[in-house]
Design a protein around this nucleic acid. Sequence first.
DNA 1: GGTGTAATGTTATATGGTTACATGCGGCGT
DNA 2: ACGCCGCATGTAACCATATAACATTACACC
Lengths: 133, 133
Amino acid sequence: MATGMLNSNDERILGALAASDRPLSAYDILEQVRSGGLKAPVQVYRSLAKLQRQGLVHRIEALNAFIRCCQADHGGHRPGFVVCRDCGRVREFEDQRMAAIAESAAGSDFDIERISVEVLGHCGRCRGAAASL
Amino acid sequence: MATGMLNSNDERILGALAASDRPLSAYDILEQVRSGGLKAPVQVYRSLAKLQRQGLVHRIEALNAFIRCCQADHGGHRPGFVVCRDCGRVREFEDQRMAAIAESAAGSDFDIERISVEVLGHCGRCRGAAASL
DNA sequence: GGTGTAATGTTATATGGTTACATGCGGCGT
DNA sequence: ACGCCGCATGTAACCATATAACATTACACC
Ligand SMILES: [Zn+2]
Ligand SMILES: [Zn+2]
Ligand SMILES: [Zn+2]
Ligand SMILES: [Zn+2]
């Protein structure tokens, strides 16, 4: 995974994601990098696609949003995510058992490209806040 | 899970989903039920939300689309999906191990509402078609 | 310099989802 | 019956997400 081929757009987008403590939508990102010359959605999506290919960024399907990968090994891991539907915060996790489950479910005739595992719910922080209303 | 409270809109939408061999987007559904009186997206989304609450319909996050649940027990099951990114066909599956994985990943402080597991890739049928080009 | 090819930029458009408000319709107290 | 409330449904307008189509630039190769 050559991470050295990032251009300045990619770097800026990666920076915006790294600076945020929660996922950003493509349009959130676009806003943050407008000053850096990017001005159209498609540019952001192109960079995001590249960053995802390199394992530096993950897409959270349930949020239509993106996070910077927080694992040391960006290449080839199969992460899952715990997503709070109140505050949007995401925790990346890894579980070897998922691959086996996916393979047995898909069958030998199916070529697995990606496994999306998202645990949706409410984090402790938000549950506390709700209780104290 | 009282499934008897479906109104005619709900029935129509459920019918459209049941008749299709692959997921339908909300707008696909809308097109199919226009003759039945529905004419705005929000009506479709309202019905879909209700049908999802009752477990009759599942949302496929990676496709922004919906399928009719094919399991006998519509209530309270935690399905996963195998999704072909070429033809869009989906196979619903169930695996008890997923709940355990989700719980251990989320931790005791997190209130799990839903688990989304989607295995994305290419089905045998589509791989065959691609090979014969 | 001319030519082909890939990356990037620009504009416009397609697709997916929600907000805000109007209207209808059944309870329920009077 | 009447007026009022609360909730389901209808309608229009709008916002958010993603891609298509085409123009331009950058650079390798000859
Ligand atoms: Zn990661
Ligand atoms: Zn939270
Ligand atoms: Zn199901
Ligand atoms: Zn297929």
